[in-house]
Design a protein around this nucleic acid. Structure first.
Lengths: 392, 392
DNA sequence: CCGAATTAATCCACGTTATGGACTTAATAT
DNA sequence: ATATTAAGTCCATAACGTGGATTAATTCGG
């Protein structure tokens, strides 16, 4: 239910509105902010003053909006004080990054670890080291870490990972294993948000994360759609052929059995081992470029299967556009065309526009960036909460 | 973007919060309202006074919350003043209803019209008559009609019906053909909302409307999910078998080809004609009850296909529960079991709870009721807007 | 080169809204 | 009958945004 407002919550919201507008409209004068938000110049001035005091905003030169008259002093987000830590646990690596309020990446580090063989405790201890390194570097730059988010490959329910089949984790309460207050979210969700904030994607899109599994994150009106229990977006298990090959999810003919990384490599005649040998995808790319028929055929079929699953997804969720990320990003050239063809054949009669298929520009970094970005966006939405911590 | 708040909008929101709580928590004292909303008793008292003045709330007897002390005077929604008109255009009938602020149905009328053979203008002129009758009756009861919504079978984009294949309508701007300010929305969407508000469904569910076509409306946290362009929920065209029979949507093997009303009747050996002969479903019910093997087999197959499509829907949208409405309501007994079996087999490994399948308790009335309910819920969310019109 | 016009930002008195403690009212318990 | 408890109202106060006046910094026209 919507919460009742009091004077302080009104102020908090308005502060968020003003800061959000500063973020959106770049360097902008107080007068223009007043115009856009509908608040008076007086109110905006006071708020901008507070935001400057708390180190979230700085003045930067002058702007001339009209032709005549006194020019305004522009204000913009300051990246010098508030920052966020994004962490990612994936099947074969860990990564961390620190992002400032302007969404500039200030620190970034990664480490190859096989988390399938390591225990959750071991993995988390590696992650702790990586996080500490990133935090130290950030503090050396004078940054204050407002919060941390961890991306994990699997459905998350309030910090608890009930089952992450690709990691082999069961009932792990991730934040408890880290010496840092942190929140946890699904890798596919955060990758979608990463694409939204760092990849200049539109306001409405479906981001497809092709990894060992295939996940998807739907963004509508700039907000992530999570479903009733936060488990939405499991594109990998959408039914492509009801009596197709058995899937580890218990179903048959799921998309993952046609376009998942393992299935794709196997169909291409590479790496029969589950999980794929290291270098599987680079090898596949090489053979595709060399024009070998079997890999080409494998991509064609995977693309068609993806097209079928996306057709169902479009009918059900009506995304604006579709962004292919993860391993589908390097494979875009070979996968997108058959997928697009399949979708167009099946959708064009009912809709006058079939969602466009585009490539992710972030690839594998999307989730880590999204994790940090989520914290930043929360601070911007409610700067009142953070003003004490951020101020010098 | 979220809007900046001023004193008046703060008051408007709080008034809505209080009224919403009155709706939700039935007869309730001012003190309890203050407790729940977090506002002070003073503020709540003033607001309740305003709401009583505008005829939206009445005092009703006393309530004793604790054991000792002065009992509170209960306030609850008043159904005596504010009401809403819901209209529905469907393939073979028109209907109208007037609902008051307490969601009690005050007037209800319907008319059988074959809208496939009638032109949009003819249909709308019939609807105008029906609406006028309902409005007159409501005014005779002293009710004030706060607004009108029209339910139509087909995707709607801001009042414009681009193409409603089941009606044979193209580019019809529905509100322009009615002598009444009204909004238009998709029948499947409004049926889902009707189920939410009138059928005591939970806060999260997917409502499946089995008519000639199969639509679905997803409700998450009490709000309808519409997708980027408002076209979400086309369950009927989710792919069940990629190389199945051709569908009028241009695809192949869509759910509608297995579980749509026409396909179902045909498979049961009834009514080869598209659209079904009148009495098709009652006849089918009779034969099912008689235990005829071919209709039973048809329902079994339709249920399995529905289960496959719902499996994809659950993976993508993660609904809490699933409500079967429209023709699936009377057929529930024969369709639900195979659908449930199929879903459980495919979903239970990945999720520890498979969404429950339940019957709609409203059947065909859901959309008309939802149309009226939408207006009521808007008034309750923002009573400030309506206080002048409603007040004595 | 200087005054008029124009726009930005700040200042200050004011109106609106919610607050919180005091007070009144109405019930139960002792 | 008196104390206790809780509901509802009253009133002075605080928080916040408003809007007009003022000051500041430009450009334009003569």
């Amino acid at each position: 239910m919507t919460q009742a407002l009091r004077h302080d919550s009104m102020r908090a919201r308005n502060l968020g509105v003003v800061l959000g507008e500063v973020r959106k409209s770049g360097p902008i004068s107080r007068a223009a902010l007043a115009e856009i938000t509908g608040l008076t110049k007086t109110t905006v001035s006071k708020m901008v003053g507070d935001l400057i005091d708390s180190g979230m905003v700085t003045e930067s030169g002058a702007v001339r909006d009209g032709e005549r008259g006194r020019p305004g002093t522009a204000v913009e987000l300051s990246g010098e004080r508030v920052a966020a830590l994004g962490l990612e646990i994936n099947v074969d690596y860990l990564s961390a990054c620190v992002v400032d309020l302007t969404l500039r990446v200030r620190t970034r580090c990664a480490q190859a670890v096989d988390n399938r063989t390591a225990s959750p405790v071991e993995t988390m201890s590696h992650l702790q080291e990586l996080a500490q390194k990133a935090v130290d570097e950030a503090q050396a730059q004078g940054l204050f870490i407002a919060g941390t988010t961890i991306a994990v490959p699997g459905p998350v329910d309030g910090g608890l990972i009930h089952a992450a089949p690709n990691l082999g984790w069961h009932d792990v309460r991730v934040p408890d294993l880290l010496d840092l207050p942190a929140e946890v979210d699904n890798e596919a969700n955060l990758a979608a948000l990463g694409e939204l904030w760092f990849g200049s994607a539109p306001e409405d899109f479906l981001h497809v994360s092709g990894e060992i599994g295939i996940g998807a994150g739907l963004v509508v009106g700039g907000a992530l759609f999570r479903g009733a229990r936060g488990l939405a977006g499991e594109l990998g298990h959408v039914v492509v052929t009801p009596d197709g090959p058995a899937c580890r999810c218990g179903g048959r003919g799921c998309l993952e059995q046609y376009a998942g990384q393992d299935a794709l490599l196997r169909a291409a005649g590479l790496a029969g081992a589950p999980g794929g040998v290291p270098g599987g995808v680079p090898e596949l790319l090489e053979r595709l470029r060399a024009g070998e028929p079997r890999p080409l055929e494998a991509c064609e079929r995977a693309g068609q299967a993806l097209g079928v699953a996306l057709t169902s997804a479009v009918h059900l969720m009506d995304p604006g556009t579709i962004v292919l990320g993860g391993v589908f990003a390097p494979l875009f050239e070979w996968i997108a065309e058959p997928a697009r063809r399949t979708m167009t054949a099946r959708l064009s009669t009912m809709r006058h526009t079939v969602p466009e298929l585009t490539v992710s520009r972030l690839g594998g970094d999307a989730a880590t960036l999204g994790a940090a970005g989520r914290v930043i966006h929360r601070v911007i939405a409610d700067p009142y909460l953070w003003r004490r911590f951020a101020s010098r």
